[in-house]
C-alpha cells in the first residue's frame, strides 16, 4: 500500500471506516493519522500520514510468535489466526511500529489490509473510503497495479527502515 502524504488532509475517515468495517472494539484502532510539523513559525512544513501495520516482509511479529498464530497470508499480508493466539504479547512487544493491540476477547488484533474484502476483489475499507483518494493498494509484484505505478513515478519513503523489518507501507513524498 502507498499513502500520498501530499494529498492526505488528515480527516481520519480511514480510521472510522476501518473501525466500522472490522467491528474494532470501542477505544481501539487498527490505523491512525500522524501529523508531523517541522520548523518554526512562519516557515513550517506539514506532513500527514495515515499509518497502520506495515505488513513487513521480515516481520518480527511472525518471527517471535510462539504458536504460529501470526503468519504471512496471501500476498504477504500478515494476519493473526485468532483461535491459535494465546495472548502472550510477544508480537505486541516486537513491533517497532506499535501496530498491534490486545483485543478485549483475549487474542491480538491488527490491520489485515481487509483481507476479507481483498479476496472478493474489493479495496481495503480505508482505501475505498478516503475522500481525497490518497491511498493506493495492490500487488507490488504486478507492475500494472496502482501501487506499483505510483511507486514508479513518485519519490517515496518507508518508516524506520533501519529497524530492518522491510516494511511494505510506502509514503509518497
Amino acid at each position: 500500500m502507498a499513502v500520498d502524504t501530499r494529498k492526505c488532509v488528515g480527516c481520519s475517515d480511514c480510521v472510522v471506516a476501518c473501525q466500522t468495517e472490522n467491528s474494532v472494539p470501542i477505544g481501539f484502532c487498527r490505523d491512525w493519522v500522524v501529523e508531523v510539523t517541522d520548523g518554526t513559525y512562519p516557515t513550517l512544513e506539514l506532513e500527514l500520514r495515515s499509518e497502520r501495520c506495515n505488513h513487513c516482509d521480515n516481520s518480527p511479529c511472525v518471527r517471535c510468535c510462539p504458536t504460529g498464530a501470526s503468519h504471512y497470508d496471501k500476498g504477504g499480508i500478515v494476519v493473526v489466526t485468532h483461535n491459535k493466539c494465546i495472548g502472550c504479547g510477544a508480537c505486541i512487544a516486537s513491533c517497532p511500529y506499535d501496530a498491534r493491540y490486545a483485543h478485549p476477547d483475549g487474542y491480538v488484533d491488527k490491520c489485515t489490509f481487509c483481507l476479507h474484502r481483498v479476496e472478493k476483489g474489493l479495496l481495503p475499507s480505508c482505501v475505498a473510503t478516503c475522500p481525497t483518494k490518497c491511498m493506493y493498494f495492490g500487488d507490488l509484484n504486478d507492475p500494472k497495479s496502482p501501487v506499483s505505478i505510483m511507486l514508479k513515478n513518485r519519490k517515496y519513503k518507508t518508516l524506520i527502515p533501519e529497524a530492518g523489518t522491510k516494511p511494505q507501507l510506502y509514503f509518497l513524498i
Partner: peptide, 13 residues
Amino acid sequence: EELIVSGRMNPFI
C-alpha cells in the same frame, strides 16, 4: 512535533 491526530489510546501500546 509528531502528533497522532486521529487519537490513539490503545491500552498496552
